[in-house]
Amino acid sequence: MMPIRDALPGAGALAVLQRNFGVWRKLLAPSLLGNFGDPLLYLLALGYGLGHFVGRMDGMPYITFIASGIVASSVMNTASFEGLYSAFTRMNAQRTYAAMLATPLRVSDILAGEVLWCAVKGLISAVAIVIVASFFGAIQGPWVLLALPVILLAGLSFGGLALVMTALARSYDFFMYYFTLAVTPMFLFCGVFYPLHSLPPLAQQLAQVLPLTHAVALLRPLLTGHLPHEALYHAGVLLLYTLVAYGFAWRLLSRRLLR
């Protein structure tokens, strides 16, 4: 059995983060195009197209309502994709983890570096959307900067969950389960496109279990000029997801890599 202090990451996690950032910088152009282009399309199609029929939702123009939702769901998508497909490629096809383990880096350093990187990528995509949405006047108010730590925290929880899946995966196909059973339901039922209170009570309660609900509950007010209600509760759920997912991912990855 491994001592529990091995689960705590050290400074090596930053070397892993730096490595991933270095690779991302090389592929900057297509990456940024996706970060700016996708949300622009969503905002145009849903904000203007659908918004024309919807009018106002929860006391704000639909494009404003949906902009914050897209910020939250994009953090989920970006961090999940990075923690699933990209991390699995590094672990399996490129054997990057094996190369790292031949140095003083430990599984916890690698895992923490990966989860941090998922969060940073989530942040990059979120900031891109915030910038695009500001041009539509869909982001407003004095609390926008407070959204940044929330975005990072949400990215850590989604990144951690994705790495649990990666630690279990035998091939890329496995990730379809996670997308169909977790990511897509969250995208559709956690308040991104419409307020939660329009769902039947049971569905509302189920949604409370999912991390995206809490990311939306924090980000929508912060990005539209209000302070969120029960902020500590929502942040606490995201933090709990982060820590529990990290713990599971660490156990599973250790078992997989240190055989």
Binding site: Q94, R95, A99
Partner: peptide, 11 residues
């Protein structure tokens, strides 16, 4: 020096 090369292909 591992049996299978694991250089970083993007670098």
């Amino acid at each position: 020096v591992p049996q299978t090369d694991n250089l970083d292909p993007d670098f």
